[in-house]
Computed example of a mutant assay.
Amino acid sequence: MATIEATLNIGPRVRALREAMDLSLRDLAELSGVSAPMLSQVERGETSPTLQTAARIAGGLELTLSQLLRLDEGGSVSIVRAGEVRNGPARRGHAYEVLTPPLPGLRAELSRHVLDAGAATGGLDDPPMHEPGSREVAHVQDGALDLVIDGDRHRLQGGDTVTFDADLPHHFENPGPGPATFLAVVSAGLRRS
């Protein structure tokens, strides 16, 4: 019984996973069916969830209970299989998928983006939410992109790679004529806000 209770002390992991997915307590409550006050108590270590509650939290985080409890981890290697990628919300001709696992303490995230001709990853009304000090590396696989960063425009072609300060206002645009595909790695900032 002590082993199960120790295993269910998952508060810091739940919080790290929730924050990595950019979810508020209220968001996770809606996704999991576990109340926000209960989630807050779990995250702070004030209570250990039952197995049923832990399973609901795992589902809200798009994980199995085994993944949440780290029962299926085989050491320091974590593999995200092709069918296990997390899709970001597709909108305005921009679709993306996160290729890295939602692990606590992970300092970088790899994502694959597809932009339709004329589409953009965001703009003035949709700034990136990267923490201060973040860096981004983007590699254009196919097509052409314009990186618009802090008022400057940079044309990128297939095979080009760019590195920049991701905490500056920026977005990618596809000038066309066809779709553009690129990989992006965002690393966490050295400075904390």
Results as ranks from 00 to 15, higher is better:
L39Y: 10
P127G: 06
T161D: 05
G133C: 01
D167S: 03
E109Q: 10
E97S: 14
G74I: 08
T163Y: 02
R92M: 11
F172E: 06
R112K: 12
G143V: 11
A58T: 02
E97Q: 15
S134F: 05
T7G: 05
G118S: 09
S193W: 04
G158Y: 02
P128W: 05
A58Y: 01
L156R: 04
D152N: 09
S193I: 03
G93R: 00
T53L: 02
L61R: 02
G11K: 07
A95D: 11
R155T: 07
V186E: 00
N174H: 08
L69F: 01
G105Q: 11
R15D: 02
L51N: 03
D146W: 14
T121F: 05
P104A: 04
Q52K: 15
G176H: 09
T7R: 14
R18G: 00
G11A: 00
D142Q: 15
A82E: 13
A188M: 07
E73C: 02
S76N: 15
A6H: 12
E5F: 09
G143W: 09
L51C: 03
G75W: 06
R81K: 11
L65W: 00
G83S: 11
R135N: 05
A188C: 04
A90K: 11
A180D: 11
N9H: 14
H139G: 03
E131A: 13
S111I: 10
G93A: 06
A6S: 14
L8Q: 08
P127A: 07
M21H: 13
A184C: 12
